[in-house]
Computed example of a mutant assay.
Amino acid sequence: MFNKLIAATLPYMPQKFVWIFSKRYIAGESIEEAILASKELNKEGIKVTIDLLGEFIKDLHQATENKEAYLKIIDAFEENKIDGNYSVKPTFFGLLIDEEICYQNVRTIVEKAAEHNNFIRIDMEDSSCVDKEIKLFRRLKAEFPKHVGLVVQAYLRRTLTDISNMMDLQNGSSKLNYRLCKGIYVEPEKLAYKKYEEINANYLKGLEFMFQNNIFPGIATHDKNLIEPAFALIEKYKVSKEKYEFQMLYGVTPELRKMILDKGHNMRVYVPFGKDWFGYSTRRLKENPKMAMLIIKALFHRG
């Protein structure tokens, strides 16, 4: 109840207060700040994926602006020789307004990345977007087989079926590439597992399916109870380290991240930035009120 109360009132609090919490998990507002954060991670042997904050736009003019912003981001990051790729949220480009225009916007971004032999990750959003985002991924994968991947969410009951149904896209050297995460959006029980143990079990089923079928997984988690079993699956299937990577959020569990790196595994960090950091932070709190306690801790502890 306390967490939900904090989460509900946070959007009405001064942004400077919210920033006390948010600045640990967001690289900044500008491209320059995101490049600086990415360079520091690269020095540690960590790759990045770049995300310009924002989603669920209201008109297609915003979608065009967001597309142009991403093209500038790619130019800037490639010029600075950042070891990383890019993540995009389809709703940021008009998915819920006009699917075809969204496709054209995202296609332009994927094409730009492909010119640099780079890669775009299509983020998965709430359940109302899943079918549309799989459709978008299918279209782009057909044209840019080595330059586009998708996020799948272990807490959705449909995810294993979705992964299996997309096996037709696995052709020759064009391997499927998924970021496997738990999922954060609030969904009804008929669509999503609610119990911690069920979500973790489904996560590991999905990961094992990927290893069995030569799919590249981004193992996106901060949960030690998933990381150790993931190590076991890597050993079981003798997966070479160029065929998977671990992924974590910027600023989250740095000690655990270092442990994974020290064991010789590849690591990629999701680096969000942009002027919509306030909206991003408050939306995430509404979706996951348990994060509210982290805000209270952040006021009194730095580490």
Rank of each mutant, 00 (worst) to 15 (best):
3 N>L: 08
6 I>S: 00
8 A>Q: 11
8 A>M: 04
11 P>W: 13
12 Y>R: 12
12 Y>I: 09
18 V>R: 00
19 W>N: 06
20 I>K: 15
21 F>P: 05
27 A>C: 05
28 G>F: 10
29 E>T: 11
34 A>M: 09
37 A>S: 14
44 E>T: 10
49 T>Y: 15
50 I>V: 14
52 L>N: 07
54 G>S: 13
60 L>I: 02
60 L>P: 04
61 H>A: 13
63 A>H: 09
64 T>K: 15
65 E>Q: 15
66 N>P: 12
67 K>D: 05
67 K>S: 10
68 E>Q: 14
70 Y>S: 05
71 L>A: 03
73 I>C: 09
80 N>C: 06
80 N>F: 02
82 I>W: 14
86 Y>M: 01
87 S>F: 04
89 K>T: 05
96 L>D: 11
97 I>T: 02
99 E>T: 12
100 E>D: 12
108 T>G: 12
109 I>S: 04
110 V>H: 06
112 K>T: 14
113 A>E: 10
116 H>K: 11
119 F>I: 05
122 I>K: 13
127 S>M: 05
129 C>V: 01
130 V>C: 10
131 D>H: 14
132 K>G: 08
139 R>P: 02
140 L>T: 13
145 P>R: 10
145 P>N: 04
150 L>C: 04
154 A>F: 00
158 R>F: 02
159 T>P: 05
170 Q>L: 06
189 E>R: 10
189 E>Y: 08
193 Y>C: 04
195 K>T: 01
195 K>P: 06
195 K>I: 01
195 K>L: 14
196 Y>K: 15
196 Y>G: 08
198 E>H: 03
204 L>I: 00
208 E>L: 14
212 Q>V: 03
218 G>I: 05
218 G>R: 07
218 G>L: 01
222 H>C: 06
224 K>H: 07
224 K>R: 10
227 I>W: 02
229 P>V: 02
230 A>D: 00
234 I>W: 03
237 Y>E: 00
238 K>R: 15
238 K>C: 05
240 S>F: 11
242 E>T: 03
242 E>H: 07
242 E>M: 00
244 Y>P: 00
244 Y>E: 01
246 F>E: 07
246 F>Q: 05
249 L>K: 02
251 G>V: 10
254 P>R: 10
255 E>T: 12
255 E>N: 14
256 L>I: 12
259 M>T: 13
260 I>M: 03
262 D>F: 06
266 N>M: 02
266 N>K: 15
267 M>H: 10
269 V>C: 08
269 V>H: 01
274 G>Q: 04
275 K>G: 09
277 W>T: 03
278 F>H: 15
280 Y>L: 09
281 S>F: 07
283 R>Y: 02
285 L>K: 02
286 K>D: 13
286 K>A: 12
290 K>G: 11
293 M>C: 07
294 L>Q: 12
295 I>Q: 10
299 L>A: 04
301 H>M: 15
